[in-house]
Simulated scan of single mutants.
Amino acid sequence: MSAAVGGLALMVVLGGTTFVLAKGGMSHEDRIAAALQSSELFAVLVSGSLLGAVATALGFGTYRRMPTRISREEAIAGAVLGLQAALSGLVLLWFVHGDMERFARNFLSFEQIVPHSEAFLRGAGNTLVLAGAGELFGVILGLVLSLFTMSRRAVVRAPARVYINLFRGTPLLLQLSLIYFGLALGLGVNMSAYTAAILAFSLNTGAYSAEVFRAGIQSIERGQMEAARGLGLGYMQSMRYVVVPQAVRRVIPPLMNEFVILIKDTSLIAFLGLSYAQRDLFSVGSQGYSQYFNATFYVAAGLGYLVVTLPLIRLVNWAEKRMRSGIPGVGG
């Protein structure tokens, strides 16, 4: 009972708010402000909050009297859903009592974005290129470094550890600055901001990927290496044909997660002074804000990052489930 009430309450708050906004129209800031200040939205939020409070009271109140574990879990689920609905409704009620006209004018003026849609699309493409190139070269570098860090020879292992600790222990923004400005001013090595960004992302990703690969390789059962050596394979042959292929399968989800993080980190290149054709999503948003002094451009950039990253996050979650179900001893 409480689960149904809690689900209904959350649907009223979230679905009702979406319906009221869609009904009022999202094409102009005045319509958005009017929808946010409407009596319909107020009624929706109050109703949803009250339903949420009822579901919370029902869930926690009947939990101990439920005869089975399943019914107790349903009671807790209803209470949690109701609590989420009540808190969401109250927060939205507090929010809409502010100056919605000013908020919509500064953050939801999407009609100003339409003429710049091509720039945002180009920025999304540049973001993916920067992150994709950085991830590709970084993964290759990380695999090599991971093998070095597991060497029995200190002269091989030590430089790799120094490199990894150096790039993991310093901010990516500092690394971008040193590569782009430091090489040009200190050594006279001039490169475009785009090239410098890819180089910095690759070197930084290589350090993190090395640790991911090292953990993946060390998670392979020791008997795999021993069996390969027993068949007459050398150390490097055993790593190449037996251990590393199995490790790669295990490290795919964390490497994909690193790629998602790198997509967001591409916003750091905004200070390098990219050309119009090289701007990433955040740079496009920053340029629009500096031109119109309207934060809607930042909102659009944020939505662009979500469009790019959310499918990848779903893919990471799916891959993690596949890895857990296909690897003995991993997961449930």
Rank of each mutant, 00 (worst) to 15 (best):
V243L: 12
S192F: 12
T149C: 03
V139M: 12
A124Y: 11
Q237N: 12
P254E: 13
F282G: 07
G288Q: 11
V162H: 04
L10V: 12
R222C: 02
W318S: 04
Y235M: 05
R65D: 10
L36D: 01
R122K: 08
L83S: 14
E118H: 00
I32Q: 05
Q175K: 09
F201Y: 06
K23C: 05
E29D: 10
E101G: 09
I32S: 00
A295H: 15
G182S: 01
M66S: 03
T170R: 05
A3C: 03
E221S: 15
A4T: 15
Q224A: 07
G59M: 05
G82P: 08
R249P: 01
F201L: 15
A79K: 10
R161N: 08
R161P: 00
A57W: 14
L143S: 00
V284H: 14
V12K: 10
A131N: 09
A277M: 10
N294V: 05
F213S: 02
Q112E: 14
R249L: 05
W94N: 15
P115H: 11
I261D: 07
N294G: 10
D30F: 11
T17K: 05
L262F: 12
F148M: 07
S286P: 06
A215T: 15
I269W: 11
G16T: 09
A301D: 03
S267A: 11
A34F: 07
Y194K: 10
G182E: 01
G169P: 03
A43W: 08
E258Q: 12
V96H: 01
L310Y: 04
Q278V: 11
A247I: 09
Q291G: 09
L187D: 05
I32D: 03
A4I: 15
F282K: 12
G125P: 05
F137T: 02
V129T: 13
L136Q: 01
L143K: 01
A33V: 06
R69T: 10
L130C: 00
N257H: 03
L176M: 13
E226P: 01
V189Q: 05
V330F: 02
F201P: 15
R161V: 08
L83Q: 13
R64F: 03
V44M: 00
N204S: 08
L141Q: 02
F297V: 14
G24A: 09
G142P: 15
V12P: 03
G48F: 09
L306S: 10
M236S: 15
F42M: 14
A300Y: 07
L312C: 10
K264N: 15
T18E: 01
G24K: 03
I263H: 01
Y292Q: 11
M225C: 02
R153M: 12
F107L: 15
G134M: 02
L145V: 08
L255F: 02
L183N: 03
L185V: 12
T205Y: 00
A35Y: 08
L90K: 04
L272H: 14
L36A: 01
T56F: 05
N204W: 13
G223P: 02
A300V: 07
T296N: 11
A227I: 02
D99P: 14
F120H: 07
L173C: 13
G15V: 06
A35P: 11
F42T: 15
I327P: 01
F181W: 06
Y276M: 04
N257K: 01
M26P: 08
A200Q: 09
G234D: 14
E111R: 07
S117N: 09
G188I: 01
L8D: 03
M11Q: 06
